[in-house]
Design a protein around this nucleic acid. Structure first.
Lengths: 316, 316
DNA sequence: TATAATTGCGTAATTAGTTACATAATTAAT
DNA sequence: ATTAATTATGTAACTAATTACGCAATTATA
């Protein structure tokens, strides 16, 4: 398969599908070798029934890992071909009790030889290969059960996206972004207040000149997130984390966390001991981000903002 | 998958199918992560088109190992979604020349990140496993190309069936079988001749008492094949291989070969140096069996049988 | 230069599974 | 003792591929 070498590992799904297909194509003809009128897809169901006794549709489905409609259809076909008999359970009227018929048991005896030959052929293949396909499948089943492929891809995506993000100090060129990004979420959930305009229109004089600072998150050199550290005049706290905003277009890239981490580092470097912040419980992702950064809830304090209904702090 | 441990290696096909399924189920959701409106099944076709330039339906199908109707349908869907443009080839009116549209190329740029993330996730999985699934698949593809699973199973069947066959010396109880098995094929292709009746009705006096012998092949204790070694009164040959017959019901169990081998061994043990046989070229399987046993064609000699049109010999 | 064979490709039917939904029977909970 | 939730099953619709088939365009051949 030249194609797969070009595409690389990401096509492992397609490659598996094709290998499966070449094998199942042969399966139909293998049954013919043993002159049993038998469809390969019946095999797992048949195998379970050979254990003897009666089974319900769902118990078979669960055992072989198929959906129950699949088993239902297969049983219908096997009944039609006389391999299987079904009868309603007297104790539980929903149950369709299924078992091998005389003809089914007879076919089972015939099929034993086939089992040994196919197992022999597969084992021969396994022994001729250096890499154990059987065990490799087993491992992948386990690994994917632990963490799905989707989750794994998601994690890779996150790391890669994070690497594209850089956190830089505020510069006058980011003044409009600082205002726009904050105005975006504030006016979406609340209304812009007097204190907002003061801070957003005069970042330099109001925040930086007062001993605070602003960090900007760049993604492809575009400012997509901002966060400010305000000097507080308070016996309990040194700084306030405020004006954290991330563009909705840049969600899922971990930008909020990276900004928060960087701001905390800055606060530490400036000799701060305790951080403070205000927010609103309606902003669930923000609150959970603050939690992740280590902030804990504290009792209410007066705030210049209408919208503040929760306060948090973090000891550095 | 408890079931597979019970069933064993012969269910490797089903097991592969399930692994494939869990992976392709995730694939659809992975595309959503990159907000491209893209179906996973388009991927191989898309990948080929990304090489740039125009392709025909069949060339794509060949490249990715799908059937052409499959590619035809996928292209139709991609055209509908604006990823692909098609136009008839002017030089060859049958050809449907297919290439990426502007939107397609744009999606291609977006998808690059996905390629790296998926490849990364798969490589992570491969590195976490002790048995290399990727290489194992590659090996199986190769091994199955060399010899299909069907062929391998067939060979195992043959060996197993051969083991059920035993070659025993003639006893009077096999007299009827000796005649019946031979009469069956002779009267099917030719007519019974005087010499046939003489030999078949008087095996003891005509064959054994004259220094020859008969071997019988038993399958489940039933005589299903016979073969005679006749003492010849000839300067060139010691014995003639004759009256070889195998029941059509017992075909494909290698019985002819086993009988032939055993007869040759007997001839050697009796001190013979050269064997002779007569047959008819209409009996193709028989002739090729004699070849396999080492017999070579020789120039004609007089025969008591009408039907003999080929003579063969074997130096022991 | 007709005629036959090959090639390209689309449509239809089939396959072996799936999910979604409906219904009846049983079990649990108030 | 109702009512709600769960379980067992079947039917219908969908999916992603396949084979079978037919038609038109091109190429090879006598």
């Amino acid at each position: 398969m030249e194609f797969f070498n070009k595409v690389g590992k990401m096509a492992i799904g397609s490659r598996l599908r094709m290998l499966t297909e070449t094998m199942t194509d042969d399966a139909a003809q293998i049954y013919k070798l043993y002159d049993i009128d038998f469809q390969p897809k019946w095999f797992p169901v048949f195998y379970v029934l050979q254990e003897g006794g009666e089974f319900t549709i769902t118990s078979i489905a669960k055992e072989i890992g198929h959906s129950h409609p699949s088993v239902s259809k297969i049983i219908a076909e096997m009944v039609k071909n006389g391999f299987v008999t079904e009868k309603k359970d007297k104790a539980d009227g929903r149950r369709n009790m299924v078992s091998l018929s005389a003809k089914g048991r007879e076919a089972g005896a015939k099929i034993q030889d086939q089992y040994t030959d196919v197992t022999g052929a597969v084992e021969e293949l396994l022994s001729q290969a250096n890499h154990d396909l059987w065990k490799a499948i087993e491992e992948w089943e386990y690994l994917l059960e632990q963490k799905t492929l989707l989750r794994r891809v998601q994690e890779h995506q996150k790391v890669r996206e994070s690497n594209k993000v850089s956190i830089v100090p505020y510069e006058p060129q980011y003044a409009t972004a600082f205002k726009a990004l904050n105005e975006e979420w504030i006016s979406k959930y609340f209304v812009m207040e007097e204190a907002d305009y003061k801070a957003l229109d005069n970042a330099d004089s109001y925040i930086i000149d007062n001993g605070g600072l602003i960090l900007v998150a760049l993604y492809n050199d575009e400012p997509v997130g901002v966060c400010a550290l305000l000097k507080m005049d308070d016996p309990d706290y040194d700084y306030e984390l405020a004006k954290m905003a991330v563009s909705p277009k840049a969600q899922g890239k971990n930008i909020g966390f990276l900004l928060g981490q960087a701001i905390i580092e800055k606060a530490k470097a400036l000799g701060g001991h305790k951080l403070y912040l205000e927010s609103n419980t309606i902003l669930k992702p923000a609150i959970s981000l603050y939690h992740k950064l280590g902030f804990t809830k504290v009792a209410g304090r007066p705030s210049p903002y209408e919208r503040a209904n929760i306060q948090m702090e973090l000891a550095l």
